[in-house]
Design a protein around this nucleic acid. Structure first.
Lengths: 233, 233
DNA sequence: CCAAAAGTGTTTTCTCTACACCCATGT
DNA sequence: ACATGGGTGTAGAGAAAACACTTTTGG
């Protein structure tokens, strides 16, 4: 059925901005690729790929992420679509960016390495090809906005984490210091966390209690409309 | 130069969610089209069009808007890209939505009419083709978010307007009543408005002072990072 | 016993909300 | 003189911000 005949078609791609949080270095990182192919071989880029005929943009993004990390069912959000005619010097490519939040420890390291992927801290990113730097900037903004409204932080931490780790994460996301007492008061008052009776004893002698995020509580929360502002100055 | 050969190409379109504010009826409206062509002839839809080879998505959206309304340099924001394989029953079309904020009185009425365009209140929209209803919902959400962060409301009003009109607009956007005194206190404390010495005397005997939005003041404002929350409960 | 990180409350400030009456004017 | 919509301020509640010391324990 050729209803729309004679209309120009376009190459359509997706690019994934893959965020991970390094709990030790307390840094928000991106999984970037040192390109092993032309164009721009040897340069750094986001993980991307073309959209097939029988898949949606979201499916394409999930596939790209899976091929790189071995992960499925990852938290992803569509971000923006870049359609400048000359953005890719090789050909006209329209690309939709997605950001993914993953737990760094979950990825298939071998697979990632094989594909030339490396974690790079957002505070000192290498130069990226094409308009990928703009993509990252926009995604980071989006993430910061989302983090005020949804508990996305938990996607970046292991199942169990301490309040100190959670605070460090938010400090890494917003690149600013947060008051410890206010942060704890606020996050605990939201009733989204369950305190476990186990302690993290690596970073301190005293040890810090582990907590777990309870998604069901968040459902209730989200129903009545709320503002999850952790962007404390 | 055929670097990316053998890769499937796609039809790419843009759809415009055109918001306007009817100052008399105090209603937020959308400029919708009664389709005069197949598929879905006679049904309502957003204004859309395919993306040409030599234009960006933004340019395509601006073109579509221009062809319908005769307006250029309109406030537009890219919103989301819809890439489900089956979203358009005629063919696989990937479509990026943009919302536009225009002053209702500015459009070329004849041109719009010729194209089958009509203003429809957002509170009672007709059924739309494909996934256009979803597009509208998402755009409206986005608009509500943006309105908290940027003074987008002024895009929808004439150059000069009264505080009552401005409040009515916000009430139409958020579909809720706002306290008059609190609203005025807040909006005036932002120092974005200039009081003119002219009154609107049509709707009342006493008359209401006209104001004008001062973009330069907003620049200063935006620099220091702020929260323009007019979503008063 | 001491170094190092975890944990804990109170006061002050500011922002948000609720609320009701007078004003100006055309008819 | 009155009906109609325009314009104005204050007090109370609740949220956000500032702030410093005690606790625990492995070495």
């Amino acid at each position: 059925m050729k209803i729309y005949s004679g209309i120009p078609k376009h190459l359509v791609a997706v690019d994934c901005i893959i965020f991970g949080y390094d709990i030790m270095e307390k840094e928000l990182k991106l999984l970037l690729i040192k390109r092993g192919f032309e164009p721009a071989k040897g340069k750094w880029s986001l993980a991307g790929g073309f959209v097939y005929e029988n898949e949606s943009l979201e499916e394409a993004a999930a596939r790209v992420l899976y091929n790189l990390t071995g992960l499925r069912n990852v938290y992803m959000e569509q971000n923006y679509t870049y359609g400048e005619v000359d953005r890719d010097p090789g050909a006209r490519v329209i690309s939709t960016s997605f950001y993914a939040l993953i737990k760094i420890q979950d990825i298939d390291r071998e697979l990632a390495e094989k594909n030339g992927a490396h974690w790079r801290s957002i505070s000192r990113l290498p130069e990226l090809i094409f308009d990928h730097t703009r993509m990252v900037e926009r995604a980071l903004n989006e993430l910061r906005q989302q983090a005020k409204v949804k508990p996305v932080g938990f996607e970046l931490l292991p199942e169990t984490f301490t309040l100190v780790q959670l605070q460090d994460l938010y400090e890494a996301i917003y690149q600013r210091k947060i008051d410890k007492r206010n942060f704890r008061k606020k996050i605990l008052s939201m009733n989204l966390l369950e305190k476990l009776d186990e302690k993290e004893k690596i970073t301190s002698k005293r040890g810090a209690w582990y907590y777990r995020f309870i998604p069901e509580k968040y459902e209730v929360f989200t129903q009545k409309g709320f503002y999850f502002n952790l962007d404390v100055s």
